[in-house]
Amino acid sequence: MPSYKINPLEHEKFFKASMKILIHGINYAPELTGIGKYTAEMAEVLAKCGHEVRVVCAPPYYPAWRVANGFSPIKYARQERNGVSVWRTPLWVPEQPKGLRRIVHLASFAASSFPVMLRQIFWRPQMVICVAPSLMNAPGAWLVARITRAHAWLHVQDYEVDAAFSLGVLTGSMFKKLALFVERTLFNRFDTISTISNKMIERALCKGVAPEKIVRFLNWADTSAIYPLNCPGELRAELNIPDDEIVVLYSGNMGVKQGLDVLAEVADRLASRRGFYFVFCGNGPGRDILMALLRKSGVETT
């Protein structure tokens, strides 16, 4: 496998002192999970390193799939957050993000954020980072980068086209060929493509991305805050889980692609055995489906 770079935040070729960096992505803090968390922390670290950072994003809505209190789905807003200038644009959020509704959801942000991205041309960023999902943002981010002669960077957290067709969210061979063609065209337009694992790098190579464009940019965790405990945690007591029970934990987004139906089946098969306690922590459009599967199978829930 071709070699690739390790950490773009430490690579002087890309991040020079006092750069103007524009980040374009639908998810951002105060979303606590997923892409919004990582994008916000990346932006804040860049700001602390002395860069001038602007972010164009949507109001927080994930993983609950509803706009958070204190934010508007129909108004433009701007705020300063931990040293980063954050520009929020309108967004349509469906109650059930499936098929065409999910596409319209992503398109609503791509359309509403495009004028704000064009406005940043006068600021003249030196680096434009587009975070995918959603790939619909990529044309606007690439255009701004080209007009301002900035470095165009696409950071891929998820191959959404592959996932959509694998899960049956989108169907049709002709539509799939068209979507993959658009994806490949966009990938080839950017100066740098980064993603979060070796397997995803291999996938990028299979999609025709030149090896010299690829950067491995891993997601992270704060090990000073998250670490194994030497004693039972407070949450076990709060949930009334005995100390000798084995906890099977799922924590994160509850969507279609997480395959939570498999966990529901496992919980059903182990329901008659003592010593196991399943904890599902999170939210999303698949939460009600999961609970319905558990109730249908007769698994006791609290």
Rank of each mutant, 00 (worst) to 15 (best):
A152I: 07
I121T: 11
S272Q: 09
L294H: 01
L135R: 00
S197K: 05
E245W: 13
D288R: 06
E202W: 11
F109E: 02
A111D: 11
I21A: 08
L170V: 14
F175N: 06
R146W: 10
K257R: 12
R189Q: 08
S18L: 13
E183A: 04
F14K: 06
P115Q: 06
A40S: 12
Y4D: 09
S251N: 12
F190V: 09
W123Q: 03
V86Q: 01
R236K: 11
M127I: 15
V209I: 14
N240P: 01
R54L: 14
S18P: 04
K48G: 11
I26A: 06
T148F: 04
N69K: 07
G83C: 07
K177A: 11
H51M: 09
R101Q: 13
V128R: 06
G25P: 04
I129S: 11
A107P: 00
V116F: 03
Y4K: 07
F276K: 04
D158L: 06
V67E: 05
M19G: 01
H105Q: 13
A40W: 02
I214M: 10
F280L: 07
L143G: 05
E80Y: 14
L235C: 10
K296N: 15
L135N: 07
A164H: 03
N82K: 06
K20A: 12
I26C: 04
K213R: 14
I35M: 08
V169C: 07
V144F: 01
A64F: 04
V182H: 04
